[in-house]
């Protein structure tokens, strides 16, 4: 309850902070639109030339794009704004402002994960879910309570996994405050726009095990194609759970290091 209240007030103050600049709203809207248009046109151009891509047709590929956009939006809603304040040359770890975070009587990982919100990301979320809705309607399959529920569960697993990965990168900042680990990930994460199945086998392997972006976008989309079975859901759920525990350990180790090394 206490933590939920905290999240509420963090979100409120972030919204206020963002409203201080009116232009932010328009820029954000423009970027959302560009993101959407380039994504959809990219898929459209491809399927003007071909019927299917390794078994993926236009609606199924659009569904992946919808999940990709939604996942990106949820990430941009609070995970990235919060974790990104730690990293980089003007980040809290480098400037030492992290001291204030450590001094608060609240768990450090909780603060680092939920402190900053970017409410305009809700626009992206709406657009992403809109693309997904259109794609699924095109597939001819209808929304059932079962598919919606398994989609929600798969999306929650995907976000947990994405959070775990980003938390590890944030934790690595305590070892090397200047290095932007997230950049590497962001680059690779763009590959999740398309089904993992279209990539060469070696890359598929990398994208499933090393950087599990396949689980992040492909699995939730499969909730609507009917390819999602319970064992896959449970398997990826366990995987996400282990990942988030490991990530939390790395992060805490980093915080300890900060406390024993900084001057």
């Amino acid at each position: 309850m206490y933590h939920l209240r905290l999240i509420g007030s963090f979100a409120k103050i972030s919204a206020q902070n963002e409203m201080a600049y009116r232009a932010n709203f328009w820029i954000s809207l423009l970027n959302s639109a560009l993101n959407l248009v380039t994504g959809i046109l990219g898929v459209w151009v491809l399927f003007e030339q071909i019927e299917t891509l390794n078994g993926w047709d236009l609606p199924a590929t659009l569904a992946i794009l919808g999940v990709y956009l939604s996942v990106g939006a949820l990430r941009g809603l609070f995970i990235s704004p919060s974790l990104d304040t730690l990293t980089g040359m003007d980040g809290e770890v480098w400037t030492g402002k992290f001291d204030f975070t450590l001094l608060k009587p609240v768990d450090v990982q909780f603060q680092a994960s939920f402190r900053h919100w970017h409410p305009l990301a809700l626009i992206d979320l709406a657009l992403g879910l809109g693309v997904l809705y259109l794609a699924v309607s095109q597939m001819g399959s209808s929304f059932t309570a079962g598919s919606l529920l398994s989609f929600a569960v798969a999306l929650a697993i995907a976000m947990t996994l994405l959070y775990a990965i980003l938390l590890v990168f944030a934790g690595l900042v305590f070892w090397s405050p200047g290095f932007l680990f997230t950049w590497v990930f962001d680059g690779i994460f763009q590959m999740a726009r398309y089904p993992v199945g279209i990539y060469p086998t070696w890359l598929q392997w990398l994208l499933t095990w090393l950087v599990p972006i396949g689980i992040i976008t492909t699995v939730p989309a499969e909730a609507f194609t009917g390819n999602l079975n319970l064992s896959m859901l449970v398997g990826s759920g366990l995987f996400a759970l282990v990942a988030v525990i490991c990530a939390s350990l790395v992060f805490r180790l980093g915080v300890r290091r900060y406390a024993s090394a900084s001057s």
Binding site: S9, I13, Q16, N17, A20, T95, G96, K97, L103, K104
Partner: peptide, 28 residues
Amino acid sequence: ISMVLGNKSQLLWDIPPMDTFRVLAEIY
């Protein structure tokens, strides 16, 4: 306990301090 650092600020830059105070009240 409380720590005040003369060379660092924990206030949010773009909004009035009252809003930061409310969040702190929530935290504490």
